[in-house]
């Protein structure tokens, strides 16, 4: 038990530092694309600590207070149900008690908890952001579910560890074994990471940064910290599912950074979809590829 708790803390620290590092890179990379110098690599950490060092925070009652807590708790809980490494006792969290379907639903708990706080703050822009997020989620989840369902039915298990274990050599990586599922999932991946072209939820000018509009000080600090951790959870999940998992932290970082780089390139290159455009797009191309893959799989036999 003590080992599990220690591991959980380790997972939180690892994802936090990885996330801050990656997003530091993200900001510098974006600056270089704009032909700027850009901030130092650790700028995100500084921003985060500064937010925690604010002297006051706005509040709208106890529910507003609990929103960021639920959000962070949701993130960390889903982190603990993802196994980070394969063939290792370390960084497994509670993943043996859960599975992929549970994780997909756990990932929505935090945002919905936070949506309650957004609602109680009474900022209409925040609620608009939440609605946009939930609408976008329709588009993201459907192709994503289709692609992971292909994986689960292909490997005959819904456990993430077992899916990861089954990919023992490069040719058995799921991105090789199920290329269509991988391609479909990448669309959802970019959307779930909140990059352009799927970043309409927190649009600063249109909806005043959306769900975050009323949060400041320590609340914003928590939200910023959980955001980078959440991104890392998704990266690690994709590494586990499609990129063959990792046997140690360095391989994990290498593989997840490759995915992060893809996300960064897409985000830097594309403009923004409107909400309904995003959903329509996701329900067209990725869904058709996914359905095609299912048909090929079940009717060519």
């Amino acid at each position: 038990m003590l080992f599990t708790i220690f591991n959980s803390l380790l997972a939180v620290l690892l994802t936090y530092s990885m996330g801050m590092l990656y997003y530091g890179f993200y900001r510098i990379g974006n600056a270089r694309i704009h032909r700027r110098v850009g901030p130092p690599l650790w700028q995100n950490v500084i921003d985060n600590i500064k937010l925690f060092a604010k002297r006051e925070a706005p509040g709208h009652g106890i529910m507003f207070h609990l929103g960021p807590v639920i959000m962070t708790a949701g993130t960390i809980t889903s982190m603990l149900f993802v196994p980070f490494l394969k063939d290792s006792a370390w960084l497994q969290g509670f993943s043996s008690y859960g599975n992929l379907i549970l994780l997909i639903y756990l990932m929505v708990v935090g945002p919905l908890g936070n949506a309650l706080a957004v609602g109680v703050s009474g900022v209409p822009f925040g609620v608009m952001g939440v609605t946009r997020g939930l609408t976008r989620l329709i588009g993201l989840e459907v192709p994503f579910f289709l692609s992971v369902a292909l994986l689960m039915s292909g490997s005959g298990t819904i456990s993430i560890s077992e899916i990861m274990m089954a990919q023992d050599s490069f040719s058995n990586w799921n991105m090789m074994a199920h290329p269509a599922a991988f391609i479909v999932s990448l669309f959802s991946f970019v959307g779930m990471m909140g990059a352009s072209p799927f970043d309409v939820v927190g649009a600063p000018v249109e909806v005043y940064s959306g769900p975050q509009a009323e949060f400041g000080g320590k609340y914003l600090g928590f939200l910023a910290a959980q955001r980078v951790m959440f991104s890392m959870v998704k990266l690690i999940l994709w590494v586990d599912l499609f990129l063959g998992g990792a046997t140690n932290v360095f391989i994990l970082m290498a593989k997840s950074f490759a995915l992060f780089f893809f996300y960064f390139i897409v985000g830097a290159a594309f403009p923004r979809f409107k909400t309904e455009q995003a959903v329509d797009f996701m329900l067209k191309l990725p869904l058709i590829i996914g359905i095609g893959a299912v048909l090929v799989r079940f009717w060519s036999l």
Partner: peptide
């Protein structure tokens, strides 16, 4: 199920535990 299992007890406890820790931190 044949292809996996889920423990409601653990999910509830882990979520509750993490929630409590973060609330104390806050």
């Amino acid at each position: 199920a044949a292809s996996g299992s889920v423990s409601g007890f653990m999910v509830m406890n882990v979520f509750g535990g993490v929630f409590a820790v973060i609330l104390i931190l806050l």
